[in-house]
Amino acid sequence: MTLATDGMTTESRAAAGAFAGVSGGEVRDYVALLKPRVMSLVVFTALVGMVVAPGGVHPVIGFAALLAIAVGAGASGCLNMWWDADIDAVMTRTRGRPIPAGRIAADEALTFGLVLSAFSVFVLGVVSNWFAAAFLAFTIFFYAVVYSMWLKRWTAQNIVIGGAAGAFPPMIGEAVVTGTVGWPTFALFAIIFLWTPPHFWALALLKSGDYARAGVPMLPNVAGADATRRQILLYTLILAPAALVPVALGTGGLAYLAVAVVTGLAMVILAVNVYRRREGEAAARAAQQLFAFSILYLFLLFATLLAEHAFGLYAAVPGLAR
């Protein structure tokens, strides 16, 4: 087996037809290039941004806008996979992806990502407004260029700054509805932004060998596991109260307050657990628990906001005007 610089083996590339200029991928490979799980998170948070925004939008326009945002997110994921194919090939978590596995040629993924990026921005501009479209274009640029090409291989703060790309969708959602952005969705941006470091660093603690092999300067490899645990705890201690800001702004009601307090406390307890358990199986289990719960945490916060605003469950917190 010969491993080329782009991570594809000559054998797999030949099987995929990449040498002959023939596309070799299955439909599911192209879907995988769009990172459907990340896409679903983007759609979900953008939807919440749309429902908490003042005013409303025609359901058809809202659906079309969400579709455009989803495709834009997928396109940025595709460009990320194109750029990171060499890294993906040496990491156990990612080496089965379509490009390093040789099912899709790198150039084809690049074209796919660029075409979908342009198309999604154009469609969002046409169906909603050009401010939202420009915001989507900036988000794609931020993820594909600022994070993937610049930050990821350069600094241990890669996912801190790069996390902004994943945090923009609620603001794009509001931009679709109002043509501008305001404090309520900025608060949601801040929650996702502060959530990203503890979430990814918990994973990095578990996969530090992978990242070291790939030469990606994740915090555990650069500053050590203990410094990472301290940073995880610090970010979680800021995140839990930050998640209450929507209540102060009147975006979150009583149900949101209850969920944010309970799940925020759970996040802090799990982060303390990660901080205290530093050796062996217990340390790995603590990081695993925080990583898994962090996904549920973000989902519950946003699902509660969605339920309050879309299904009429909003009950104002006494003393706070909506």
Binding site: G17, V22, S23, G24, G25, E26, V27
Partner: peptide, 13 residues
């Protein structure tokens, strides 16, 4: 010349 497998994939695409 496409193989049968490549033709199948092309059709599904």
């Amino acid at each position: 010349v496409l193989t049968a497998e490549q033709k199948r994939r092309q059709r599904s695409r």
